[in-house]
Each structure stands twice: as structure tokens, then as C-alpha cells.
Design a protein around this nucleic acid. Structure first.
Lengths: 335, 335
DNA sequence: CTGAAAGCGCTAACAG
DNA sequence: CTGTTAGCGCTTTCAG
């Protein structure tokens, strides 16, 4: 990589403005206490030279980096098949930008990557970390804690975080699931089935709990485990239909699985919503709006979730506990 | 943000190993020329102390950052509605990781962001930049060139880049479009329509050119401008049907628009593919596989594109010109 | 082959 | 209010 032309230093600006480096530093960093005639001279010198502070030198002394790491731990390709990721990032990016922080993205796929991430975090390049898509028993949190960086998790982690607690932001998965089920009940449906997500993720567990909150200990045959993919949704739907042909409603733990279920339902000649009503979760637009019929689903504001994660990290005043964002039922044609 | 506990420095390691800082530095950086007994002592001291080099200090002297910026210029929300972005990032991330480089993500939405990005790039935080989703006449490239950083674009830019040329990686949009059209022709279709993408993006222009390459100057009424969104696809499809009710095939410039077209076709009682065959572009899985019928489309290897962009940037040996990746027609049920 | 010393560009006491 | 002076932690000549 070719080196850039040498950029002007503080020293150069100082020389040009006829002041000391300290004064230039003060002006540049907005610390008041530089009288007007001088300050103006310095500012002029700065633009004339096109001076931009060298962040490495600055970090070396301040020990701050104005950068935070966003760690996406997604061994499977699931996250990449959906636009969530981009939305969360956008929320995070907006918030960080507003506070002049940079976003360093760390994508991990396997255990090797974990070591690398641990090293990076320990290397003191960033002031904090935002962590996503953890699976139950993921070793990553340990590494992160060891690095001793302020951290906020996206989605409820599966461990309590010790007495201090963990800072996280999550959607109200459980409440959203309850709303979905109640909606189905309100439609007069009586035999509701649930297709769960991959149960090694707390989001899936929480949605299942929400289902149970209102259905009580309904027929366990009406619950089939999926994996958040369309194929998983199809398999679960087939199983459900076989076990309980009389079902008249399905709540799938995400839209992708709901889309798979829709296909199987059609295949079996069941009309949606007439014979079977279907509700998804996420409101993943490109999917929910394109299915036939369009999907009734539980929306979560994923961008806001990203923004709040960043804000909590930056604030640092935040209690280390969970912040739960509301969800909203979006009615379309499927239920 | 609370400060981390002070990490051990080179000095500390040197003391512990009973050698000089210079020697430790050599060992840590793998520069040979440290004899075995010593080297081993140093290595031991390094793990015992859990030493990790301070990147800021290192950058200050080496003037390298081992970090590259990925700039996504997407004023509209389009990119965020689809999973492309994540796939490209993943490709980039893999390649960068393999070369021990970090990925700094800069998302821009409006003109204000451009200034910020320009400043960041000029600030010498990164060794190079990867730029995406440019729209025709975007001012960003100028800013970037001014910063004088090695840069690789994702997607053919609309300007030539001066005598030096621009380094970019793109899919073979034009060739892919030709394949799509030929496939339709091979099916015996005779009145082919095209729904273009937003024509302020070269991908849309190139796909249209591909369509024309094989259709010649077919009836201009058979080309309708879309915008890469499902809604745009619907509108274009309606227009097309009105203008030319006898059409028997449609090539949409992306899958999202194809999905919209499918809906309108169904609405009008046209069967797909019996009455009208439909081909999309992208092979955006969550969409292409979920439509009814599943979409025949032109696949581009978006992750590979990301990887190659990163590789070219890192290589720096690459000629500043375009690298075009092949596309592949994927047959499903719609054509 | 190893150590001593200089300095990267900046901030933060400390004087004046 | 402004300038002087130390370093921050590391790499890199340059001697030995």
C-alpha cells in the first residue's frame, strides 16, 4: 500500500501561525482559553495547511480511541440471509457518528476467529464493544470480559453476567409472542401451533415462552422446533400437519419460517388465512410483504435497537441491565 | 468510558526477559536475527505478561494502520432492505482478516456525511478504502481522491477515473442480462419486456445494455423504468401490461422488482410461466426462493466480489482497472 | 546478534 | 493566557 504524502503536523501549523504547539493543540481541541486574535490566526493556519490531527499520536497519549468494535458472532449464514444485520448497523452507525466515534466491524465465523477477536479487544484499539447474535454457550463473552472493555449485548444473553449484570438491549420477544397468539385467539382460532426458532438462541426461547404464557401447557404436539430458516419452517409445518391435521393457526418464530410454512400449507391445499391463519415475527420487509398472502407479523424496530446499544455504550452511565424495546403487531393478510 | 487497566508495555516485557526493548520488538514482529535462547525467553515473558502491542504507538512510527475503510454510500434505504450488503462485507472481512487488517465501516446517508468521511480519510486512520453503491454524479469519489488513499470501487463507477483509471470489481451485469434474455428467447418467447433498475446506477444501465445487445432496438414500449424496489416493479409491470398486453416474458433488473411484477401478473390473471415467463437478477435468496413460483434469476457471487475488492486493495499490485466477475443463470420455476 | 538512543505527533502538567 | 517540557509505547538506525 503506497504511503500517503506526509501530512502537516501540529508543529507546522504552530510555525505558520507563529505560536507554540500547545496553543495550536488547544485551538484544535476546542479547549477555551486562547484569546481571539491568536485563535483566529491558528484556525487560518489550520485550513491553509489542511491540517488534520494524527489520531495515532493522539490516542497514544489520551488512551482513548473514539472507536468501538461491533462484533457479530454468526457461525451460520443465517444472519447474512436477512437484512437485520444491516439495519442494526445503520442504527449503531448513526449514533456513533453523532458522537464522533468510528465503527470497527469484527465478523466471526469460527472458534479461530474468537481468538483473534480476543486479541484485538485486548489490544486496546477500541473503547468498547457491541456484541450480536450470541448463541447459548458461546465462549466469546468470556474473552470479552477478560479484555475488560465496556460492552453492550444485542439480544438477551443466556447468562446472568455475575452480580454486576450484563448490559443489553433486546426486543420484547416474549410480549410480542403473546400479542401474536392473542391475535390468533381473537380471530376465533382454537388449535394454535408454534414453530420455534433455534432454541440455542434466547430470542427463540423467549418467543416460545410468550406462546406458552397465553396457551398454558397446550398440547406439546402443537409445538415444533424450527431453526429460523425457511427450510426449517417447512419441515416443522409438515410435522405439525401430520401430528395435528385439525390445527387452524400457526405462530412461527420468524418470517422466514412463516414463509416456509405458507408454502407447505398451500401444498396441502389449506387456504391461508381461511383454513389456517399464520403469524410471523420480525416484519422482515422483503419477505413479509412478498409472501402470498402477505404476512401478519410482529415488528421489532431493529434500527432503534442498534442505536440504543450504541447510546448505552457511549453513555456509560447506563446500569448494566436489560433494556427491552416494544414490538408491534402488523396486520396483513395471513391472519 | 472507563479506562482499561494499564496493559504491559514492551518495556515491561524487556525487563522480565532481561533484554532490551529492541530485542523484544524484534521477536514480537518476527524479524529474524534474535538467537534462540533469547527469543524463547522473550516469548515466555510475552505470554506470562499477556503482552499485546499498542497499535497506536506502532502506527505512530510505522505510519501504517492495518485497517481499511469500507464506505457504503447509500442515501436511500434500498441497500438495507436486502442482504447484499452483509454478503459483501463478509467477503471483505474474510480477506482482510486473513491479512490481519481491520475493517472500519463508514455508512453515509447525506451530504453532511460526505464531509465527515472526507475528513476521516484525510486523517490518516486507514491504509485504503473500499467504496460501494455509488450513484451517478456522487461527489464522494472526489473527496476520496483528494485524500489520496488507494481505493477500490465496488461496481463500475460512472466516470473513467482520468488517465490512471479506476480500480473496481463488478459483476458481469451486461453479460448476465444477455444470458437472461437469451434464456427467455430459448423458451420460445417472442415479446420480451424489460423492467430496468434505477438508471442512476451503472448496474441498471449495464443490464439494460445487455437486454438491448440481444434484442436490438426492440419496441421501446417494452422497456419500463423501475427503481430496484418491489413497488417500482409493480408499477412498471402495470405500465407494460397496459402498453403491450401481448407480452409473454419479462426480464426484471433485480429480484425485488421481479417479485413485484409477479404479483401484478397474478392480479391480472396471467399465469407464470405459462402465459408470461419471468427472470430476475441477483439471486437474492430470501426473495428468489420464496416467490410463487420461485424465481429464475441471474446469480452474482456477491461475497466473492467483496473478497476480491479487498484482495486488490491489499495487493496494491493490481492495475487500476475493472475486474468483472461472471454471473450464472439459476433456473427455478418462473422461466 | 544485541543494546542504546532518537523520535513518530500529540497532550498535559507546569511555569511564566 | 501562552509557552516549555515531558513523556505516551513503539520501531529503527547506529554502535558495539
Amino acid at each position: 500500500m503506497t504511503d500517503t504524502v506526509p501530512r502537516p503536523t501540529l508543529e507546522a501549523v504552530a510555525a505558520r501561525a507563529g505560536v507554540s504547539r500547545a496553543t495550536v493543540s488547544r485551538v484544535v481541541n476546542g479547549s477555551d482559553g486562547v484569546r481571539e486574535p491568536l485563535a483566529e490566526r491558528v484556525r487560518r493556519a489550520v485550513d491553509e495547511l489542511g491540517y488534520v490531527p494524527n489520531q495515532a499520536a493522539r490516542s497514544l497519549v489520551t488512551k482513548r480511541h473514539d472507536a468501538i468494535a461491533v462484533i457479530v458472532a454468526e457461525p451460520e449464514t443465517r444472519v447474512f440471509a436477512d437484512p437485520f444485520f444491516a439495519r442494526q448497523l445503520r442504527g449503531i452507525s448513526k449514533e456513533l457518528t453523532a458522537h464522533d466515534n468510528q465503527l470497527v466491524l469484527l465478523l466471526t465465523e469460527d472458534r479461530d476467529d474468537h481468538a483473534r477477536v480476543g486479541r484485538y479487544l485486548a489490544g486496546g484499539h477500541v473503547d468498547g464493544a457491541l456484541v450480536f447474535s450470541l448463541h447459548i454457550d458461546d465462549p466469546l463473552p468470556q474473552l470479552i470480559q477478560r479484555a475488560g472493555l465496556p460492552t453492550v449485548y444485542g439480544g438477551r444473553p443466556d447468562w446472568n453476567g455475575g452480580q454486576g449484570g450484563v448490559a443489553y438491549v433486546d426486543s420484547d420477544n416474549r410480549g410480542g409472542a403473546r400479542d401474536a397468539v392473542r391475535h390468533l385467539l381473537g380471530l376465533g382460532r382454537e388449535r394454535l401451533a408454534h414453530i420455534t426458532g433455534a432454541l440455542d438462541q434466547t430470542a427463540a426461547v423467549d418467543r416460545l415462552d410468550g406462546f406458552r404464557d397465553v396457551m398454558g401447557d397446550a398440547d406439546p404436539l402443537l409445538v415444533a422446533e424450527g431453526d429460523f430458516t425457511p427450510g426449517g419452517g417447512e419441515r416443522a409445518m409438515r410435522l405439525l400437519l401430520e401430528r395435528c391435521p385439525s390445527l387452524d393457526a400457526v405462530f412461527a418464530a420468524n418470517d422466514l419460517m412463516a414463509a416456509g410454512a405458507l408454502r407447505v400449507l398451500r401444498e396441502h391445499g389449506r387456504r391461508v388465512p381461511d383454513d389456517v391463519a399464520v403469524v410471523g415475527f420480525d416484519d422482515m420487509l422483503p419477505v413479509a410483504e412478498q409472501t402470498d398472502p402477505p404476512l401478519t407479523t410482529v415488528r421489532q424496530d431493529i434500527e432503534e435497537m442498534g442505536r440504543l446499544m450504541a447510546r448505552r455504550l457511549l453513555d456509560d452511565g447506563a446500569e448494566p441491565d436489560g433494556l427491552i424495546l416494544p414490538t408491534m403487531l402488523v396486520r396483513r393478510a395471513s391472519a
